[in-house]
Amino acid sequence: MKNNSSIDKIRSFNRFYTGFIGLLNKKLIYSNYTLQEVRVLFEINCTTYITAKQIREMLRMDKGYLSRILLKFDKLGILKKEIDITDGRTYKLSLTQKGKLEFSKLNQASELQIMSFLSNLDEQDICMLTKNMENIQNILLKIK
Rank of each mutant, 00 (worst) to 15 (best):
L101F: 07
K131H: 14
Q108R: 13
T47N: 15
E111I: 15
K72D: 01
E37G: 03
V40I: 06
E57R: 13
G64T: 14
D87S: 07
R60G: 11
F103V: 06
M61R: 01
D87T: 04
F20H: 15
Q113L: 14
E57T: 15
E57K: 12
I50L: 08
D122E: 09
N135W: 07
K105M: 11
G88C: 10
N120I: 14
R89N: 14
S110R: 11
D125G: 05
L23A: 10
L24N: 14
M58A: 07
I21R: 03
I44M: 03
V40E: 00
K72V: 02
Y49A: 10
S94V: 05
R39V: 06
S94R: 09
N138G: 07
T47R: 09
E102F: 00
E134P: 10
T48M: 11
T34W: 00
R39Q: 15
F42H: 12
K27Q: 13
L76A: 10
D62K: 04
E57W: 02
K63M: 13
C46W: 03
L118F: 06
S104M: 09
Q54L: 11
D122K: 04
T48I: 11
K80D: 13
E123C: 04
L112E: 14
E102N: 07
L112A: 13
L129M: 15
L59D: 02
L118Q: 04
N25H: 11
K53H: 12
Q124D: 11
L70Q: 01
T90S: 07
D87C: 03
M133Q: 08
S67G: 05
K100L: 08
N45E: 15
R60A: 12
Y33E: 01
M115Y: 07
F103W: 14
R56C: 14
N132M: 12
D84V: 05
Y33S: 03
L70F: 00
I55E: 02
D84M: 04
E57Y: 05
I83H: 04
E134K: 07
E123V: 13
